[in-house]
Design a protein around this nucleic acid. Structure first.
Length: 275
DNA sequence: CCCCAGTCCTGCGGGC
DNA sequence: TGCCCGCAGGACTGGG
């Protein structure tokens, strides 16, 4: 998502539009009028990521932070439906005419922050080190003393930023670690396997432009489907034979009210696959 | 510290 | 066929 909107760098914001959409408006802070006053005429200087959020930096030293949650899309082309189009930036002076935020469920948000507010909301106290560059040492530093089970811990954005429910299952499978393994019981080899699996699974998923699941919602900034769903090893595959051991069937269980998928043969409660 | 249930929403697939 | 229920890529809050 972030890579797809990088062509917006250098463009100037002419207007902020909240399209007439038949759904309840998503959260936009501050109010639309204040938002407009602060960003009109500003130039986009950079596009960054803060965990799962896209950060649009402006030459005013303020940042528009888009948090797509489950079904939000940041688009540089026409959205899938007008009905769920929630917010739009009209741009000029660059290669893009506009940038849109589309969200079917509407759980996401678009918020404007100054530097201090940004630091408070997305500083190290609120957001852990980024998962894409995680190392065994950093994993152990963030989670090594925790008595929690590893899978719910991977979803804790304060511990490590950027891992969602789908990828937590995929990462643990590749690492060969059981989702109920306690963090504090993990050995050096397991942290090593986990960090290597985190980097490789996420890099692969990004290469395939993400996972477009059954409802077809997720799209990249060009409204194109991802391809990683065809490479899922365990997610949403309960009952299927494991592609690695070819003998056990993939299991589904619930941890902290969220689905976890795993292979009980490939992911033992102790030990780890070689990193 | 950590878990749990509930909350914000829409849409879908399955069971009856 | 139609309706109701449960569930979904997330994050946050209050209670225990």
């Amino acid at each position: 998502m972030r890579r797809g909107v990088t062509p917006a760098i250098g463009s100037r914001i002419v207007e902020v539009v909240r399209p007439r959409c038949s759904r309840k408006p998503i959260e936009i802070r501050p109010s639309l009028s204040a938002f407009r006053r602060r960003v009109r005429g500003a130039t986009i200087t950079g596009l960054a990521r803060a965990g799962k959020r896209v950060v649009i930096w402006l030459d005013t030293e303020e940042a528009i932070v888009v948090e797509p949650r489950m079904t939000g899309l940041l688009l540089v082309v026409d959205p899938p439906t007008q009905e769920h189009l929630r917010w739009r930036l009209v741009l000029e002076g660059g290669s893009l005419g506009e940038m849109s935020y589309w969200d079917r469920r509407g759980l996401g948000s678009v918020r404007l922050f100054n530097r201090n507010e940004f630091q408070e909301s997305f500083g190290p106290d609120r957001l852990g080190p980024d998962a894409l560059g995680i190392t065994a040492a950093v994993y152990r530093q963030q989670l090594g003393d925790s008595k929690r089970e590893i899978k719910p811990a991977l979803l804790d954005q304060r511990a490590v930023a950027g891992i969602g429910n789908l990828y937590a299952s995929e990462i643990l499978f590749v690492a060969g670690i059981h989702p109920q393994r306690r963090c504090s019981a993990m050995n050096h080899r397991q942290w090593q396997a986990l960090s290597a699996a985190t980097r490789s699974v996420l890099a692969e998923a990004i290469r395939y432009e993400g996972s477009t699941l059954g409802d077809g919602t997720y799209r990249n900034a060009l409204n194109r489907q991802g391809g990683y769903q065809n490479h899922h090893r365990v997610y949403d595959r309960a009952g299927e034979v494991c592609g690695d051991c070819r003998s056990s069937r993939i299991c589904r269980m619930v941890q902290n009210q969220r689905s976890t998928f795993y292979c009980s043969r490939c992911q033992k409660r102790t030990g780890a696959r070689l990193a």
